Computed example of a mutant assay.
Amino acid sequence: MNKNMVKSAGIAALAAAVLFTGCSKFNPDTTLVTINTGDGTKDTISLGYANFAARYQQSMYDQYLLSYYGEGMWSTDMTGTGSTMEDDTKEGVLEDIENQYLAKLHASDYDITLTDEQNTAIADAAKKFISDNPADTLEVMGATEEYVKQYLEYRTYYSLVSSAAKEEAGESISDEDCWMRTFSYVLFDTTGTTDEEGNAVEYTEEEIADLKANAEELAAADDYSAKAEALEATASTYSYLKGEEEDDTMDMAIIEAAEALDEGDTSDVIEIDGVGYYVIHLDADHDEDASQTKKESLESDEFDKLLETWKAAITWTVDEKAWAKVEFDTLFKTLETETEETTEETTDDATTEETTDTEESEDATEDTEVEDTEDTSAEEDTEETSEESDESTEETEAE
């Protein structure tokens, strides 16, 4: 069993405690992706660079997931789709690389170029990363200063271009497009309960009548929150787009009742067949925080559409046989050792933050152990790339 000790520091867009290794059984200069940009220009992405990006992502997942899912996680079908976690992750990495490449390709559309300060910071960060990791581990991994610089540069361009494109898209989004209303709700669930053995137990007619009486008491209360607390009922909140005609999460009967309320009003009892009795209270006719979240979600949607337009304008050809040579055949494990404080370097406000599916720690240097094993596989669908504020509607489910 081959073991390497790895010491890594947080740098710019690369997380702290990065654990690298891998057996490079291929020529890193091999062309993995051939790109025809549509204007007669051809470009390439090397297998070595893509391997670096993939193994880096694997290392992050190993840190957070290995202790939960075990050493066979990378070869396991975690999503039930017939593909392994390794396959899913590698697919996500290629999508990330393409999105980042396209962002850099279209940076001039937004008059974006990296400043001398940003380029210097990226170069310094790459040097520090290489110097902070043992030469033998970097050699096994195939990590080079040039790959780290390329990685940071791509992420920086993606961050800057996506921000600019979203800001531009936001100019055409009206207040009505993202006007969110928020209400509190209590559900008096009539579907029954479970006994100590987990068996379903239906409520009696008398118990259901008591629940309805509690709902009516809450609907008539002057102080909604206080009465809900007195009834030991759980109040949750929900935000929806003003005037919406369909909702994927909340029953439209509840939305329609909310539409009829003014801010501060409480509804009558709303009976939903097979569910129970709802009583809602309109907290905000215009929830500014929820509206901002909705606007950001719409901006992200527009940027995703723009990315698809950019993709359609190029030819992106992957050498699948070469890509198959990148394997997650080595696990990355964090040792339980003393943590050292480290200074994190950043390239610029917008330089270092790109939302990806990889959760990255940002401060702390750790000693880590890389352990060769036969196979690996991690769960979690990282559907990675593209940072979106997912849903504009936020629901906290009541009991």
Rank of each mutant, 00 (worst) to 15 (best):
N2I: 11
N4C: 00
M5S: 10
K7R: 13
S8I: 00
S8G: 02
A12Q: 05
L14W: 02
L14T: 11
F20S: 03
G22S: 07
C23Q: 09
S24G: 03
N27P: 05
T30R: 09
T37A: 13
T37Y: 11
G40E: 06
K42F: 08
A50Y: 10
F52Q: 00
F52I: 00
A54W: 01
R55Q: 15
R55T: 15
Q57H: 11
Q57M: 10
Q57C: 11
S59L: 06
Y61T: 07
S67Y: 10
M73P: 05
T76L: 06
T79W: 02
G80S: 09
K90C: 06
K90V: 03
V93K: 01
V93C: 04
L94V: 08
E95P: 00
D96H: 06
D96C: 04
E98G: 04
E98C: 10
Q100D: 12
S108I: 04
Y110T: 03
T113N: 14
T113D: 12
Q118H: 05
T120P: 02
A121M: 06
A121N: 08
D124V: 13
A125T: 07
K128D: 07
P134T: 03
L138M: 15
E139Y: 11
E139N: 13
A143R: 00
E153R: 10
Y158R: 08
S159K: 01
S163K: 14
A165Q: 06
G170R: 02
E171K: 15
I173M: 04
E176I: 06
W179S: 13
W179N: 13
W179D: 15
R181D: 08
F183L: 12
Y185I: 01
D189Y: 09
T194G: 05
E197H: 05
E197V: 00
A200M: 06
L211R: 09
E216W: 00
A228M: 03
A230D: 15
E232Y: 09
A235P: 07
T237F: 09
Y238T: 06
D247Q: 15
D251I: 01
D251K: 14
A253F: 00
I254N: 13
E256C: 02
A257E: 12
L261K: 04
D265G: 03
I270L: 14
I272T: 13
V275P: 04
Y278T: 01
Y278Q: 04
I280S: 03
H281N: 14
H281E: 05
D283Q: 12
D285A: 09
E288Y: 01
A290M: 10
S291K: 02
T293V: 08
E299F: 03
D301E: 11
W310A: 00
K311M: 02
K311P: 01
V318L: 03
K321G: 09
A322S: 04
A322N: 02
A322T: 02
A324N: 06
A324T: 07
K325C: 01
D329A: 10
L335M: 14
E336Y: 08
T337Q: 12
T343I: 13
T347A: 08
D349F: 11
D349H: 08
E354T: 15
T365G: 09
E371R: 07
D372A: 09
T373Y: 08
S377F: 06
S377A: 11
E379S: 09
E379W: 08
D381A: 09
D381G: 10
T382M: 07
S386N: 12
E387A: 10
E387L: 08
E387M: 10
E388Q: 13
E391R: 12
T396S: 11
E397Q: 11
A398M: 03
A398P: 05
